[in-house]
């Protein structure tokens, strides 16, 4: 089973929660072995080179910034 570390970067605003939920749902539907971590610390966010939140980081790679996609759309970034 593929394993993925999914990080959601953002201050904890409504959009970040939504992105986290969608990512979780996508990972479940793909049957991944995954962990979702929410990163709210601005220093940690900037260290990852991100200036637009919410952002999606998968296995250390920034995949999306400033967008909330549906679970269906997110699957292509989690595969």
């Amino acid at each position: 089973m593929a394993s993925r570390l999914i990080e959601i970067l953002g201050s904890g605003c409504a959009k970040c929660e939504m992105l986290a939920q969608h990512a979780e749902q996508a990972a479940q539907e793909l049957g991944l072995d995954y962990a979702v971590i929410k990163i709210k610390d601005p220093v940690a966010i900037v260290r990852r080179g991100v200036m637009q939140t919410p952002a999606l980081v998968v296995d250390g790679q920034v995949k999306l910034q400033g967008r909330v996609l549906t679970a269906e759309h997110l699957k292509e970034y989690l595969r």
């Binding site: 990852r48 991100v50 910034q65």
Partner: peptide, 29 residues
């Protein structure tokens, strides 16, 4: 703060279809 290099993820080359998708997302949001 040690700022990381620009991470991308928001500036991948886009086709017009993707840009319209941005528009639709913005309307929905």
């Amino acid at each position: 703060t040690a700022t990381g290099p620009a991470a991308g993820g928001s500036d991948a080359p886009l086709a017009w279809g993707d840009r319209f998708e941005f528009g639709r997302e913005a309307v929905k949001d």
